[in-house]
Structure formats: structure tokens, C-alpha cells
């Protein structure tokens, strides 16, 4: 195969993986930005999104509907969880928050196992998305191009939310100084709840988008949350731009690492993280605290 074509295909593969990773890492970083804590349940929410997506599609035959219902279900679950359990924990030690979200991850994983059983679930892509296109005379799956578009659209939508809406303004203000944001008349607890629900919805959307490629299986959440942690560390905790750049770096390191140095593939992501953190301990776009 022509090396240029080969490289181009790998580039597109890397971008599509970056796009999927972006959905989950974005939610983690939004939550960290405003609550200063890591949500351990984020991988399980992503997995839930994949299962709800597959089932929606099986029952209704509509892939588009699965991309609506999965995030909606996860956002509602996230909202209920934030309002009932997390909202009491912000004033406490961070370890309480970590334990509770870790507990949710375990509970959710078991609930999924009970509800869907241990076997992987896969849904078919609709015909329009299942085809191939030719890129430099080489065949390439249409769906991966769709993923790239979806990732770019999510990045744009989030940027607009952060910079063009009042909720976005309050998210940025609260991440810089929550007490002062409240002292100017804003209900920061409501902002936190909205952010948590939004982040869960994004993760589930990522899961529903990933399901046709990877199938939905128990453990899907664990593998992806580790990549998401790495992205957030590389980009800088709480930084939107950093998360986008981190997703690209990790997507590229994994795709090209896999292809050109398969025996070192697993190490590529971690080597990247270590290199970045040695040079900039706060991450590429983070502030050192």
C-alpha cells in the first residue's frame, strides 16, 4: 500500500479514536474544573450509555434515537445522584467524594450485569453509516468519519456553551472562585448539578457512539476511564482546550503506536503522559496549584 495513503488512513483512525475519547474526558474535566474532584463513576456512565444505546436500537431500530435516549438517561441518573449523594460532600474531604463515586461505579457495573447479562451486546449500524468511502483509493469506514465530525461538533458546542451562555459564564466563574460566584447572587449548587448532568450525558453519548464499533461489554468503562484520566492529566485538570489537545495526543499515540510499534503499544500512552508531566507537572494547559 502507498505509504502516504497508509499514513492518511492511520491519521483518520487516530482522529476518530480521539473523538470518542474526547466525549468522556470532557465530562471528567468539566466536573474537575468546578468541583475539584475526580468522578470515578465516569467510565461506568460511558458503559451505561453504550448499553442503553444498543438496547434502544434493538427495540426501536433507530440509531438516531439511541443517541438521544442514552445521554438523556445518563444525564437524569447523574442529576439524581448529584442532588442526593454528592451535593453533601463538597464541603468534606475529597476522599469521601472519591469513595462515593467509586461506589457508584461498582454499583452501576453490577446493575448493568444484572440487567443485560454477561454477554457483549452489539447493534448494527444503519445502512447509511455502515458503508465505506475511498480515501486516496483505499477503503475507509464512513462511520469513523462520522465520529470525527461528532467529536468536532461536540467541541464546538461546548465552546459555545462556555463562552456564549450564562450557564457557561457561571461554570467558568465557579471554577475560579465558587464562593465569590455565590456571593454575587448565583446558585452555585444548581450550576454544579447542571455540570454533573451534562458531563454524564456527554460520556453516555460517547458510549452510544462507540457501541457499534466496540460492542457493549462489562469492562468497557474501565478501559476507557484510564485513557480519559491520562488525557485530563496531559491536558491539565479542568482545561477545556487541554482536554481537546490531550484527546488528540492520546488518540494519535495509541493509533500510531499500535501500528508502527505494536509491541510497545500499551506503553505509548503512558510514555506520553510521563513526558508531558515531567516537562509541565500541571499538564499542558493546566495551572499548577
Amino acid at each position: 500500500m502507498d505509504p502516504v495513503a497508509l499514513f492518511t488512513l492511520q491519521l483518520l483512525n487516530a482522529l476518530s479514536l480521539s473523538a470518542l475519547l474526547f466525549f468522556i474526558a470532557l465530562g471528567l474535566t468539566l466536573i474537575f474544573g468546578i468541583m475539584r474532584v475526580i468522578n470515578f463513576a465516569h467510565g461506568a456512565i460511558y458503559m451505561l450509555g453504550a448499553y442503553v444505546g444498543v438496547t434502544t436500537q434493538t427495540l426501536t431500530g433507530s440509531f438516531a434515537l439511541s443517541l438521544v435516549l442514552a445521554p438523556l438517561a445518563a444525564a437524569l441518573l447523574g442529576l439524581a445522584f448529584e442532588r442526593s449523594a454528592l451535593t453533601r460532600l463538597y464541603a468534606r474531604e475529597h476522599s469521601a467524594f472519591l469513595l462515593v463515586t467509586f461506589g457508584l461505579a461498582l454499583a452501576l457495573t453490577e446493575a448493568i450485569r444484572l440487567a443485560w447479562g454477561p454477554d457483549p451486546r452489539q447493534a448494527e449500524l444503519p445502512a447509511a453509516l455502515a458503508g465505506i468511502v475511498f480515501v486516496l483509493d483505499e477503503p475507509f469506514p464512513v462511520y469513523r468519519l462520522v465520529l470525527i465530525g461528532a467529536g468536532a461538533a461536540a467541541a464546538l458546542a461546548l465552546w459555545l456553551l462556555l463562552h456564549r451562555t450564562r450557564l457557561g459564564l457561571l461554570m467558568r466563574a465557579a471554577s475560579q472562585n465558587a464562593a465569590m460566584t455565590a456571593a454575587l447572587g448565583n446558585d452555585v449548587a444548581a450550576v454544579r448539578a447542571a455540570v454533573f448532568a451534562l458531563a454524564c450525558g456527554l460520556a453516555a453519548l460517547g458510549g452510544a457512539l462507540a457501541a457499534p464499533l466496540f460492542t457493549a461489554y462489562i469492562g468497557l468503562g474501565t478501559s476507557v476511564i484510564i485513557d480519559a484520566f491520562v488525557i485530563v492529566m496531559i491536558g491539565g485538570m479542568g482545561s477545556f482546550v487541554g482536554t481537546a489537545v490531550g484527546s488528540l495526543l492520546v488518540g494519535f499515540a495509541q493509533t500510531f503506536g499500535n501500528f508502527y510499534f505494536p509491541e510497545l503499544a500499551l506503553g505509548a500512552t503512558y510514555a506520553l503522559m510521563i513526558a508531558v508531566l515531567l516537562l509541565r507537572p500541571g499538564g499542558l494547559f493546566g495551572r499548577e496549584e
Partner: peptide, 24 residues
């Protein structure tokens, strides 16, 4: 009352150290 309702009742707060939002 929580801070946002105190503020809405009509109290403005200029805190020690100013506390402007540095990245806004």
C-alpha cells in the same frame, strides 16, 4: 440563608483581597 440568597436580598460584597475572577 445561603450566600446567593443573601446577595439577592440586597447585600453587595467586596471581599478581602478583591477576589476578581482572574481568567474572566
Amino acid at each position: 440563608r445561603p450566600p446567593h440568597l443573601v446577595a439577592r436580598a440586597g447585600i453587595g460584597y467586596v471581599p478581602e483581597g478583591r477576589q476578581v475572577f482572574p481568567d474572566l
